[in-house]
Design a protein around this nucleic acid. Structure first.
Length: 888
RNA sequence: GGGAGCAUAGCUCAGUCGGUUUAGAGCAUCUGCCUUACAAGCAGAGGGUCGGCGGUUCGAAUCCGUCUGCUCCCACCA
């Protein structure tokens, strides 16, 4: 194959992805090998790929591809989440744009629209993941509303209901007036919001519903709720308000009479010390109402508009009503003053509507036992959080968890399997048939049409918490007819889970609970928590800011491998990612480097009769050792989930060690305009090393590695780098590495001299070395430093030139006429001065008796070595200085 | 309001048990090169009082206290 000077990912990526699919390389079935399993964090079914997905799925793919090459039976289960509220919102918005209101549709009609939407937009994101190179087992693709997965959810509900952990109760819930549903506490975001603090006069009643001229003052941010007031409350210890005891006051504008009550909940020094109690529209007020038996008057409807009970401003939106009522209160003389005020206000995570506390009947799941066990799972280390700093937050959440409100007033999702009898009794069964049977057990005369199923659906997380179990066995253990399933027993528990910390509680903790409940075992061993992808100035990526690049554009522009590298280079676990396209360019450059190194080695010719040169021998032996050393480092990084460090180690091994040093050392010389052939031993080693390198990089850069691996030799149909075993480290001689490093440092120093003295790279220079230097490194220096001669001598016989030190070895390059003696003297003096200061520091330490007495022997010995090295350097500098001065 | 975390080069980050480090990497920057794989490249160079102050210790980027600045989580003082 002819190779162009630049790597072109577009020509390569689709080809190999199709090849992988065609041969079902991603597919896994239980076998005798050790399983390695990951379930995908299911993206919203109608979602599209964003940079967060790219990060997450690249990490997943790196782990799964690494495991596959490590010889495990790797299985990555993909799928999507029905995302009840998010999807329903989208469908409602789409219908609205077509002039259809959800309220005009029956449940069945609406669901038909929703499924049509899902068929049209669903799974786009999974197609996009293929572009990224994700090696998911697509045959196992799951959707949380697949019929059998829905069945698992329903059975789970029945399971907990029969266990007595699910109950229905009237509670103050977080009501989203836009989505028209309750949302959980976790779905409410509190933001400090600028508002007003209105001070209102409530006149004391004369007992007959007429105002006297005395009044009290309350301070409120929500004047539109005064019509729902049930009492005015003061702190019993607040003497300022004792005169109000037993009094009744009149609500402004509507003149309804309400009592003054006392409760220590009221803060004396906040506001006026008088609190208006509005049980229907505030959580705390509701609790005060319960304590004092106050009536609950609900004046706000599900849309957030005032209803008939309000008596005034009926039908007005709560915020419009607020403005209007302020004006009315002002006119009536009840508004004493208005203050600017900033207070936390809850917003719906989904619709950004201001949450309205609202009383309603909802279904709850008791959390105490589930949370206790889930905490134990993490604290005992059965499931590890990476980074482990999240354990504190996790513990706090588990210890303060409240019962989980699992019902949602939506249609898109699993409908709650509860049926109401005409008398209000409820039966909970997996389906209508079973429900009728159960109902007839209570009242044999009942018929199917007498039963009414609960209208609500279940919270999305109530289905996705089963994900690591239900994707393998939708019937779920715990079901009375459950038969153990081969997939579940083989793949569960899964190994690692990669996800964002924002859903640690929503999803991860709840999967642990479900795992404990149904499997008696944690669902995964490690949870790798990524950071949030931000733009380069630290803003969260969002559609509204328009600061999020389209990953597919990036892939088209730079290639999938480049995008993957770009994401990984800046992603240590748990830290937020500051994304910058230049990181992807770095990845693209690396692809090109790999590509061109391959072009070079492909151009090598072999001659079986050529003897291996010294320099080739040294380079081959060195890289052999270096490769093993780096493999050890990389494996260590992987074992600690330090993926970006593992990648960086491979990157440097490839670029610096293999390309810049190894290939430059063994690259054939030219004769008569043609490169000389290479000996076979070197050639074979070079290819062997290249193959090891592309195998090491394959989990991160699947496409280019497959392309080059396939090109290296004639591969059979069905062969792939995907299953090539990860290179293994072998024992190596560290002194081989040291020797080469010293040669490299020497070469760098000589190049530096050339650069500094403005000498052309090929200007012949002689090198003299004094002292103990590894002889095998000499040919490397000759080859790469363009020296005319390298001699190891007992003493330097001349002084006109440049002196330098490599570690503790003195070196000298004669440079007659090319050096400025004054400059050299100044340079040496500076170094000498620094060295003397350094020596003084070391000696101060050594002469401190407490140091020599307390410090470990090895540390003291090291200080002594520093002292000796420093002394020898000083001696060398001084003698160089002397001869330089003499030569003037 | 409560809790947690972070602060190391221009940027993003390593730095393990306090001592093999006279604080490292990648990118960016600067200088010189179109040298027979690669200018998406090569060679070289510069750049840090480890956020401030105090303490423990023979020894602190590392441990403790405190201040400053950021981030996140939890929390409806109406």
């Amino acid at each position: 194959m002819e190779l162009s000077a630049k790597y072109n990912p577009a020509e390569v990526e689709d080809k190999w992805y199709s090849y992988w699919l065609e041969h079902k390389f991603f597919h896994s079935e239980p076998n005798e090998k050790e399983p390695y399993t990951i379930v995908i964090p299911p993206p919203n079914v109608t979602g599209i790929l964003h940079m967060g997905h790219v990060l997450n799925n690249t990490l997943n793919d790196v782990l799964i591809r690494k495991a596959r090459m490590d010889g495990k039976n790797a299985c990555w289960v993909p799928g999507t989440d029905h995302a009840s509220i998010a999807t329903e919102n989208k469908v409602v918005a789409k219908l609205k744009a077509e002039g259809i209101s959800k309220e005009d549709l029956t449940r069945e009609e609406f669901l038909a629209h929703a499924w049509a939407w899902k068929e049209e937009h669903g799974g786009i994101i999974l197609k996009q993941l293929r572009k990224l190179g994700a090696s998911c087992d697509w045959d196992r693709t799951r959707f949380t509303m697949d019929p059998d997965l829905s069945e698992a959810v329903i059975n789970t509900f029945v399971h907990f209901y029969k266990k007595g952990w699910i109950y229905k109760g009237v509670r103050m819930v977080n009501w989203d007036p836009e989505a028209l549903t309750a949302v959980s506490d976790d779905e409410v975001i509190h933001k400090d919001t600028q508002s007003h603090f209105y001070h209102l006069k409530y006149y004391i009643s004369d007992g007959n519903g007429n105002p006297t001229d005395r009044y009290l003052v309350i301070a409120t941010t929500r004047p539109e709720t005064i019509m729902a007031d049930a009492a005015i409350c003061v702190n019993p210890a607040d003497e300022r308000h004792h005169w109000l005891r037993g009094k009744k006051v009149l609500i402004p504008l509507i003149n309804r009479e309400i009592p003054v009550i006392e409760d220590s909940y009221v803060e004396m020094d906040f506001g006026t010390g008088c609190l208006k109690v509005t049980p229907a529209h505030d959580v705390h007020d509701y609790e005060i109402g319960l304590r004092h038996n106050l009536p609950v008057l609900d004046i706000i409807d599900e849309h957030g508009r005032l209803n008939e009970e309000a008596r005034i401003l009926v039908g007005e939106d709560r915020f419009v009503a607020r403005k209007k009522i302020v004006k009315m209160l002002e006119e009536s003389g009840n508004l004493l003053k208005t203050e600017e005020y900033t207070s936390p206000v809850g917003y719906s995570e989904r619709t950004n509507a201001v949450i309205e506390p609202r009383l309603s009947a909802q279904w709850f799941l008791k959390m105490d036992k589930l949370a206790g066990l889930a905490l134990e799972t993490v604290e005992s280390g059965k499931t590890r959080l990476i980074p482990d700093k999240y354990i504190n937050t996790y513990r706090h959440w588990m210890e303060n968890v409240r019962d989980w409100c699992i019902s949602r007033q939506l249609w898109w999702g699993q409908r709650i399997p509860a049926w109401y009898l005409p008398d209000g009794k409820v039966v909970v069964e997996p389906d209508a048939e079973a429900a009728l049977k159960a109902a007839q057990a209570i009242d044999p005369s009942l018929k199917a049409e007498d039963l009414r199923q609960d209208e609500d659906v279940l919270d999305t997380w109530f289905s996705s918490w089963l994900w690591p179990i239900s994707v393998f066995d939708p019937q779920m253990p715990g079901h009375p007819d459950h038969v153990p399933n081969k997939d579940l027993s083989y793949y569960y528990p899964t190994n690692d889970l990669v996800t964002g910390p924002d859903i640690l509680f929503f999803w991860v903790a709840r999967m642990i609970m479900a795992g404990n409940e149904f499997m008696g075992k944690e669902p995964f061993h490690n949870v790798y928590l990524t950071g949030i992808v931000r733009d380069k100035i630290g803003r969260k990526m969002s559609k509204t800011l328009g600061n999020s690049p389209d990953p597919l554009d990036l892939i088209a522009k730079h290639g999938a491998d480049a995008v993957r590298i770009g994401m990984l280079l800046c992603s240590s676990a748990g830290n937020d990612i500051f994304f910058d396209e230049s990181q992807i360019e770095q990845g693209r450059n690396f692809c090109n480097k790999i590509w061109n190194s391959y072009r070079l080695i492909k151009s090598f010719a072999v001659d079986e009769n050529t003897q291996q040169s010294d320099v080739c021998k040294v380079a081959v032996d060195w890289f052999d050792a270096k490769l093993s050393q780096t493999i050890q480092t990389v494996e260590d990084h992987y074992s600690k989930f330090r993926i970006s460090d593992a990648l960086m180690a491979i990157y440097k091994l490839f670029w610096d060690d293999y390309c810049s040093w190894y290939l430059e050392a063994i690259k054939p010389a030219y004769a008569d305009g043609k490169p000389l052939p290479m000996d076979k031993a070197t050639y074979d080693a070079t290819l062997r090393y290249f193959e090891a390198l592309i195998k090491m990089i394959h989990p991160v850069m699947p496409f280019i590695s497959e392309e080059l691996w396939q090109d290296m030799e004639q591969r059979k149909e069905g062969e792939t780098i995907m299953f090539a075993p990860t290179p293994k480290a072998r024992p190596f001689d560290a002194s081989v590495i040291t020797a080469f490093e010293m040669a490299a440092e020497t070469i760098n120093a000589i190049r530096g001299i050339r650069n500094q003295k403005n000498l052309p790279p090929r200007a012949p220079l002689a090198l003299k070395i004094k002292g103990d230097f590894p002889k095998q490194a000499v040919p490397v220096i000759e080859r790469l430093a363009n020296t005319s001669s390298v001699e190891i001598v007992p003493e330097f016989s001349e002084s006109n030139g440049v002196n330098f030190l490599i570690r503790t070895v003195e070196m000298f390059v004669p440079l007659t006429g090319l050096i400025n003696v004054e400059e050299e003297i100044a340079k040496l003096e500076k170094e000498l001065e620094y060295q003397k200061k350094f020596l003084a520091g070391v000696r101060a330490k050594l002469s401190n008796e407490r140091f020599t007495a307390h410090a470990p022997e090895a540390v003291v010995a090291n200080e002594r070595k520093k002292e000796a090295d420093s002394l020898s350097k000083i001696e060398s500098f001084e003698s160089q200085l002397k001869s330089l001065i003499n030569s003037k």
